[in-house]
Design a protein around this nucleic acid. Structure first.
Lengths: 186, 186
DNA sequence: TTGGAAACTTACTTGTTAGTAAGTATATTT
DNA sequence: AAATATACTTACTAACAAGTAAGTTTCCAA
């Protein structure tokens, strides 16, 4: 794999997560990387193409995280906390997650980027519902709704608190994700 | 007040909530309203100006809702449910709320639009924390965290579930907001 | 009836956008 | 040594963006 290609994806992701899909341009990338506009088009013919590749990279990262946890056989609470760490890191870097960054722009995305974003969100949600469900089965978690609804709510909390804490600085992010976890304990 | 001016604000808000701030143009507005580009600039010299006015309109609407509830002296649960109705309506119209629509674009907004968005979010959060706190005092609600943290979590749930339900259609939105309310009951 | 304000349109400008066609340098393979 | 592929640059284009200056119509008040 080309190092320039990887830098473009990395920077593109960063721009999406800090400024949004429709607020970044190929110029932003080429200027920052010290290359020409056409060089970006060489690797990613269209912006849609780049967007799709960025989401795919994120899917891969998520899959690797899940695999990695399977290897170390974490329990459900540890898995959830590992997942939440991604959001704590994002918050520290003042970035949104890709789902939260691309979600509001959904109607302006190309079909392929939409498809990948749906696939990613579905994967995360299914994984979350799974660990919430099996965690409840083991008595690690306790909640009334069905696991998918609760997973949706947990993800919503994580996604939006990144967005809101950008607007409202006076919030203690730690207490927010603590409340999410505490709300699941028996 | 001019009817054209009001139509521009209404359409502008709709565009922000369906496509995002950076994905709509003065052309979109002028074409739809059958007027010229410059006519939009006549009422709103800059896009920043229009954005700010749209947020201010939303603040006013929120204030009117709060006032209206004071008049009919609703209890805390009724107030919360009235607020949630805004989100149910937004979901039906396939729109985000302005906070959720502008939040991800925060870094690209003008200072005045940022200021108004902060003011709006702060208002909503304070109001929510107030009714959650006093509701808990009366035994209507029950939760462990401090009211502001819980308010942050409730708002996050509402804001992000609009975004996520746009990506994931297979979700029953009713059960989501029901879970938010149920999670507050003693 | 005339002056002026309100509500626009006409006709631009300037900058930025995604995207492309054709060329060049460098390394690798045949 | 010649051919080919990789990784770009040069030099564009066409469309669209926000924004403006100057004019026009319409209505109302003095």
């Amino acid at each position: 794999m080309s190092v320039t290609r990887e830098k473009i994806i990395e920077l593109g992701e960063s721009l999406i997560r800090t400024r949004g899909y429709n607020a970044f341009s190929y110029q932003d990338i080429s200027t920052e990387l010290g290359i020409k506009n056409a060089a970006v088009h060489y690797y990613f013919p269209s912006k849609s193409n780049l967007g799709t590749s960025i989401v795919r990279t994120n899917i891969q990262r998520f899959e690797e995280m899940v695999e990695n946890m399977q290897g170390r056989d974490f329990d459900e609470l540890q898995k959830l906390e590992t997942f939440i760490k991604i959001y704590i890191k994002s918050h520290r870097e003042n970035k949104l997650c890709i789902v939260g960054a691309l979600g509001p722009d959904f109607n302006t995305l190309s079909d392929s980027t939409k498809t990948e974003l749906i696939r990613m969100t579905e994967m995360v949600l299914n994984w979350l519902a799974d660990i919430l469900g099996s965690g409840r089965g083991k008595g690690i978690f306790s909640f009334k709704e069905d696991p998918r609804t609760r997973a949706f709510l947990v993800l919503s909390g994580l996604v939006a608190s990144l967005q809101l804490s950008r607007v409202i600085e006076k919030i203690d992010y730690k207490s927010v994700h603590q409340a999410i976890v505490e709300g699941l304990k028996p």
